[in-house]
Design a protein around this nucleic acid. Structure first.
Lengths: 109, 109
DNA sequence: TCCACTACTTAGCACTACTATGTACTAGTA
DNA sequence: TACTAGTACATAGTAGTGCTAAGTAGTGGA
C-alpha cells in the first residue's frame, strides 16, 4: 500500500469498519475480505484484528462466538448503540475535513 | 482537538499544508495562523514546525530565510516541482478514499 | 522591568497501520 | 499417512505522525 494511503487510513479505517458493520454483523476474516473487495486490496489481516480488539474494548460492538463449518470459531461483531454514536461522530468529523479539503482543492486558500 | 480529528489528520495535514503553499509561499507561524483561521483552531504550533521540517527533508519545498520586522527571521517555504508532484498524488489518494467513504455513507455496504 | 506577540525548535508521548509470525481447525489429495 | 490450501484469529515489534510541553530569540509597549 502506498505510504500516503497508509497514513490517511489512520483514523478513517475504524470509521470504515463501523460503517461496514451497520445493520450487517460480521466477523474479522469476513471484514478483511470485504475491505479487500472494496478497493483496499492490501489491508493487512493483522490490522483488522487489532482494530476489532480496539473497538471491542471501547465498547462499540457486541461480540458473539459462532462455530464455523471451516476452521476455528468466528467472532461475530455487531454494532451497538455506542458504536452507532461513534459512527455518527465519525461522519461529522469526516464531513468537516472533507469540506475543508474540497475548498482547498478549489483554490479556496 | 477531538481524538477522531487528530487521527484523521494523520496523512491529510501534510496535504493540507502543501495545498496551502501552492502559488503562495509562507512561513511556519503564518501557516499555523492560516490553519487556525480555516477551521483547525487547535492545531499545535509544534505539529506544524515538525511537519515543515519533514517536507523540507523530503525535498518537497524550497526554503529561504527572511528577516522579520518582529522577532526572529522567518523561514519561507515554497512548493517546488517535487512538492507539486507529491500534492498531485495526495489528491489522487484523497479522491479514492473520499469516493469509497461516500459510497459507504450511502449504504453501499 | 515585565508582558505580549512574533517566530522557530525539540524531546517525549500516544495512537494506529504494517510486518511477520504463530496457532488452530477442516477438507482435499497424493 | 502426510501434505497442502483455505478458513479464522492473535500478537510482538516497527514506523510514521500529531500532540504536549518546554525552551530560545527578537521586538515593542505598559
Amino acid at each position: 500500500m502506498g505510504k500516503q494511503m497508509t497514513e490517511m487510513l489512520k483514523g478513517t479505517l475504524e470509521g470504515i469498519v463501523l460503517a461496514l458493520l451497520t445493520g450487517n454483523p460480521a466477523y474479522g476474516y469476513e471484514i478483511t475480505t470485504l475491505l479487500r473487495a472494496q478497493g483496499f486490496p492490501d489491508i493487512a489481516e493483522g490490522t483488522v484484528y487489532a482494530l476489532l480488539v480496539r473497538i471491542e474494548q471501547k465498547g462499540l460492538v457486541d461480540v458473539e462466538k459462532r462455530p464455523s463449518e471451516k476452521g476455528p470459531p468466528r467472532k461475530v461483531y455487531t454494532l451497538n448503540a455506542q458504536g452507532t454514536k461513534e459512527l455518527d461522530e465519525f461522519w461529522n468529523t469526516w464531513s468537516f475535513l472533507s469540506e475543508r479539503l474540497e475548498e482547498l482543492r478549489k483554490g479556496g486558500k
